[in-house]
């Protein structure tokens, strides 16, 4: 029980830290700092996943959320403006308020619903149960997640691979007229 207490304490502290970091990211005016703080945020989410016994997701989160995301955002910031400017023109107060209201309402609804769900760690999901019991016999993989990802639900993963593939094609297609590709590479 003692260990679990420490676990819960750490977990909750991390959650609170997450909220604080999120606010900092939004409020920081210097976007480069914001990107770095977002990286820290990603590490903490990864930790939380790990504590929830989802090491696969934790690995993905850390590699993507900290590695690639930060790298791409840093480049994006360096290509655009570094310091946030005052939003000019229209006053977005009412619009922002209504959007916030809708979001908050949705969040409340979703939380009310999720509160009903079975407690964490109770293996009551039938399909999940099947995977856990039969994966070694069916596929012969120690990593059940890997087996689900590429065997039981391989078609989904193919789809997700295509999503990335498509997204990069989109980037190339949309920004194909960027002049930088052809004229002088340095500078």
């Amino acid at each position: 029980m003692e260990a679990l207490g420490w676990f819960n304490l750490l977990f909750n502290v991390l959650l609170i830290l997450l909220v604080v970091l999120a606010v900092i990211v939004v409020e920081l005016k210097d976007l480069l700092y914001a990107v770095i703080v977002a990286g820290v945020y990603g590490v903490i989410i990864g930790l939380l996943y790990f504590m929830l016994q989802a090491p696969d997701i934790a690995l993905t989160q850390i590699v993507v959320g900290v590695g690639i995301q930060t790298a791409i955002l840093v480049v994006a910031v360096s290509k655009t403006l570094r310091v946030e400017e005052k939003a000019s023109g229209k006053d977005l107060g009412l619009k922002a308020a209504s959007i916030a209201a809708v979001v908050i309402l949705t969040v409340i609804l979703v939380f009310t619903v999720v509160y009903d769900f079975p407690a964490f760690g109770q293996p009551v999901e039938r399909v999940g149960q099947y995977y856990v019991e039969n994966v070694l016999k069916d596929v012969g993989a120690w990593n059940a997640v890997g087996a689900i990802v590429w065997d039981y639900r391989g078609y989904d993963t193919l789809g997700e691979t295509l999503v990335l593939f498509t997204a990069v094609i989109v980037v190339l297609a949309v920004f194909k007229h960027a002049p930088g590709k052809r004229d002088e590479p340095n500078s």
């Binding site: 690995l59 993905t60 590699v63 790298a71 120690w142 997640v145």
Partner: peptide, 20 residues
């Protein structure tokens, strides 16, 4: 990927990170 955690996606991103 089929024995321990992770797999092609995570590893692939790591490779990209190394080059970056």
């Amino acid at each position: 990927g089929h024995i321990t955690h992770g797999g092609g996606f995570q590893g692939g991103v790591l490779v990209a990170c190394a080059f970056i």
